[in-house]
């Protein structure tokens, strides 16, 4: 909402932010036990579809939200980066569970100490594993963030890879 922006552009950004936030196509990058909690959040008891993020796509090309669910090992980190780079923009990343956030209880030769060493992260959901309510809270936080973003914020403004 810059001073120089015309009135109409601002409204388009609002509309786009709203539309993007409530039609998140999730790519579940599930590597560990947190996957159970992701399934619980996605199924009918907690129903992530109420927040517009119910459509899981198992191809990074078709998704805009990368949910990294579980521990990422150093051997897997290049795969995660490749998946992230394969996603079409606009794209967002959620670190789901303590292991994805910070490495969690695993501090040894094999585990990445948080996926933000590998790819940029938008929302961190802590918990070991997080309750489905926490996951839904995280999705809502991400929607708030998306709603405030200008429509071409990423591919014009940065060299983010």
């Amino acid at each position: 909402m810059g001073v120089s922006s015309p009135f109409l552009t601002t409204k388009i950004d609002d509309l786009l932010g709203w539309a993007r936030g409530y039609s998140l196509f999730v790519y579940p990058f599930v590597t560990a036990c947190c996957g159970m909690e992701f399934i619980a959040s996605a199924c009918s008891h907690f129903d992530i579809d109420r927040f517009g993020a119910g459509l899981t796509r198992f191809s990074p090309r078709q998704s805009d939200l990368l949910m990294v669910v579980g521990t990422v090992s150093h051997k897997l980190a290049p795969v995660l980066k490749r998946v992230y780079l394969s996603m079409a923009e606009p794209k967002w990343v959620v670190a789901f569970g303590t292991c994805a956030v910070s490495g969690g209880i695993y501090h040894n030769y094999s585990s990445v100490q948080g996926i933000d060493h590998v790819i940029p992260v938008d929302v961190y959901i802590p918990g070991c594993p997080p309750r489905p309510e926490t996951v839904l809270e995280g999705v809502m936080l991400l929607q708030k963030k998306i709603a405030q973003e200008p429509r071409d914020w990423r591919w014009k403004s940065s060299s983010r890879t």
């Binding site: 150093h74 051997k75 980190a77 290049p78 980066k81 501090h107 040894n108 030769y109 094999s110 990445v112 100490q113 933000d116 060493h117 590998v118 790819i119 940029p120 992260v121 990423r154 403004s157 940065s158 983010r160």
Partner: peptide
């Protein structure tokens, strides 16, 4: 070999380049 007792337990050998100073993080 990581299970040797003289392997430093904190030593990591990443295969990726660290992201540094990204204004969008």
């Amino acid at each position: 070999h990581p299970l040797l007792k003289d392997y430093p337990w904190k030593r990591e050998q990443p295969l990726y380049e660290e992201i540094k100073d990204d204004p969008n993080r």
